[in-house]
Design a protein around this nucleic acid. Structure first.
Lengths: 118, 118
DNA sequence: CCTGAATATGCCCTTGCGGTTATATAGCTG
DNA sequence: CAGCTATATAACCGCAAGGGCATATTCAGG
């Protein structure tokens, strides 16, 4: 039985893991930031994040399954490319909050001011 | 020794927990969404998220320590109020990505199109 | 005071995550 | 084919996160 490894294309439809959880890890944010500039090899990313090769590979898997990166094989190398679409979900969640912190009279300030009055 | 409980004001300077991790939990996002409309009592929030009272209370603690909510005691009640400022950090991280998913020729599409050509 | 209401903490348990090392797979290259 | 390179998986581990229940604290009201 041929035991298909390298089954990335399995969840192309993806959206499995939700993007908020994926971004919770700083290493994964780091990887995305690096890919923002240009596609990179898995090896480059491993060196950049400062984790072991398998450790980095697992983060890459999470990013793939969340649809945040795509992979292009080239011989034994793997070119990872950014796919920012899922970030739109976070952006959408953030939207109704965005006007709020623009120079408003902060709730915490109000709170502390109120305390001084006592 | 007076063993000060209710030590919320301890980390007013806060920023301890980072906002990405805090938002990773759907219950906490739910709470923030509810507080977007108006301040609410802890009890209201408990009912809304559908967790046990202590469970909700723990999420509220995390939100407090991240500076995402403030509390105003009123007798035994606690009014929780949204404090969106820490979300600015997420917004800032997202900013350099935001232009990318606006009607671009998606990397995944490119990838699949390329596969068809074979 | 005593009781009940509202909420926070302590404790326990289970699960999942992130990390590491060892191993498997795939594809060059001699 | 043998060996080397690049990368993914497997197996394992420690720890923190999230959930529940029991308990403590604070306060209002009879």
């Amino acid at each position: 039985m041929p035991l298909r490894l390298y089954s990335w294309l399995a969840n192309v439809d993806g959206m499995s893991t939700e993007p908020f959880g994926v971004l919770a890890d700083p290493a994964r944010r780091r990887i995305l930031d690096l890919l923002r500039e240009r596609p990179r090899l898995a090896g480059e990313l491993t060196a950049a994040v400062g984790l072991s090769q398998p450790g980095t590979s697992k983060h890459l898997r999470v990013l793939r399954e969340a649809g945040l990166v795509t992979v292009r094989p080239e011989a034994q190398r793997r070119w990872y490319e950014l796919r920012p679409e899922p970030l739109a979900e976070i952006d959408a969640w953030l939207t109704p909050y965005r006007w709020m912190w623009a120079g408003r009279f902060d709730a915490l300030e109000r709170h502390l001011d109120a305390m001084e009055d006592e």
